[in-house]
Amino acid sequence: MKTVLLRSFVALLFFTLGAQSTFAQKRSKKAKKEQVTTVQKKDTVAIYAGDFKEDFLRVFFKESGKIVYSGTEFKFVLSLILTDTGVVEDVIVLGVDNTNVKERMKTIAKNLGKWTPEVKAGQDIRSQVTVPFAIKESEFIMNPAELDRLLAESKERSKESVYSNVDTKATYPDGMSVFVQQFVELFTPPIFEGDKLRFAITFIVEKDGTVTDIKLYGISSPNQAELLKEITKAFVSMKKWIPAIKDGKPVRSQFTLPLTLQNASTE
């Protein structure tokens, strides 16, 4: 009888110790799991998925777009305001005077890829990121002297044949609605008298898609020369056109664009 009781006691002891061991292991695993889930994010600055400068410049200058700038180096700064979800909420442009160019830069910066937000004390937070630019590449910058040379060259090229009867008309790569939108963004009209200024622009789309021989019609404004220069600046900053086709070959063709300017001082 004593032997049976002793065996029962030993069995109960092992069962109790085993249960305690199993319970302790489960509690240890649970504690480790809780420790893993409560680890905070490391503090990091906001990160762009890619090369922000490269992406911005590629969109801003597009294919052959240039800006007319009198210096040898074009410097400006973009200051981005980011939300706690990585969305660009606002953009401050420093070093650029042209209002249209500023707005274009803001739009591009807002529409590029999403950012990973800044993390502080384990939380995603709003932040400000400053991105400086210094552009020296000649393919992006045209100084005023080059612009004058371009105008002179366009006069010489105007002596070549221009076709009006073509198989396929010249077109802007993204369509005329996009062309008009981009032109309005880049064009800075000079001051003029009256409520409105109506005129027409004619230009030649060359065989390589460049725009030359820009002329104004239906206007007698004293600022005609300044107006022509501002229009040329806008065209220089845009994509090349798709030239007209005749007999299977690209040819020079003329394009006419009517415009109406509203005087901002009378709005």
Results as ranks from 00 to 15, higher is better:
residue 31 A to I: 09
residue 48 Y to K: 03
residue 87 V to S: 04
residue 203 F to L: 04
residue 5 L to R: 09
residue 144 P to Y: 03
residue 238 M to D: 00
residue 58 R to F: 06
residue 189 P to N: 05
residue 157 R to A: 11
residue 102 K to N: 12
residue 106 K to A: 08
residue 143 N to W: 05
residue 55 D to K: 06
residue 130 T to K: 14
residue 100 N to V: 15
residue 211 V to P: 00
residue 172 Y to G: 03
residue 159 K to H: 12
residue 189 P to A: 13
residue 167 D to V: 12
residue 226 E to A: 07
residue 34 E to Q: 04
residue 166 V to H: 10
residue 253 S to K: 03
residue 207 K to I: 04
residue 1 M to I: 07
residue 179 F to Q: 01
residue 212 T to Y: 10
residue 103 E to Y: 13
residue 73 E to W: 10
residue 147 L to T: 05
residue 61 F to V: 03
residue 169 K to F: 13
residue 38 T to D: 04
residue 247 D to M: 11
residue 47 I to V: 14
residue 37 T to R: 04
residue 165 N to G: 08
residue 148 D to L: 07
residue 126 R to G: 10
residue 237 S to P: 03
residue 193 E to T: 15
residue 153 E to W: 07
residue 238 M to P: 00
residue 247 D to E: 15
residue 149 R to G: 14
residue 264 A to I: 15
residue 192 F to R: 06
residue 36 V to N: 02
residue 86 G to Y: 00
residue 19 A to I: 09
residue 260 T to N: 15
residue 195 D to A: 13
residue 190 P to A: 04
residue 212 T to F: 10
residue 81 I to S: 09
residue 108 I to E: 01
residue 16 T to F: 06
residue 144 P to K: 03
residue 210 T to I: 07
residue 2 K to E: 12
residue 77 V to N: 10
residue 22 T to N: 10
residue 55 D to M: 06
residue 267 E to A: 13
residue 156 E to M: 12
residue 22 T to F: 10
residue 236 V to E: 02
residue 3 T to E: 06
residue 178 V to I: 14
residue 51 D to W: 11
residue 150 L to S: 11
residue 102 K to H: 08
residue 123 Q to H: 15
residue 252 R to V: 01
residue 204 I to E: 02
residue 211 V to Q: 08
residue 11 A to S: 06
residue 108 I to G: 00
residue 101 V to K: 13
residue 132 P to L: 12
residue 266 T to A: 10
residue 143 N to E: 04
residue 262 Q to K: 15
residue 201 I to W: 00
residue 161 S to K: 15
residue 4 V to W: 00
residue 22 T to D: 08
residue 201 I to K: 01
residue 210 T to V: 14
residue 226 E to P: 01
residue 193 E to P: 04
residue 266 T to W: 10
residue 160 E to I: 14
residue 8 S to M: 07
residue 180 V to R: 07
residue 237 S to R: 07
residue 194 G to L: 11
residue 66 K to D: 00
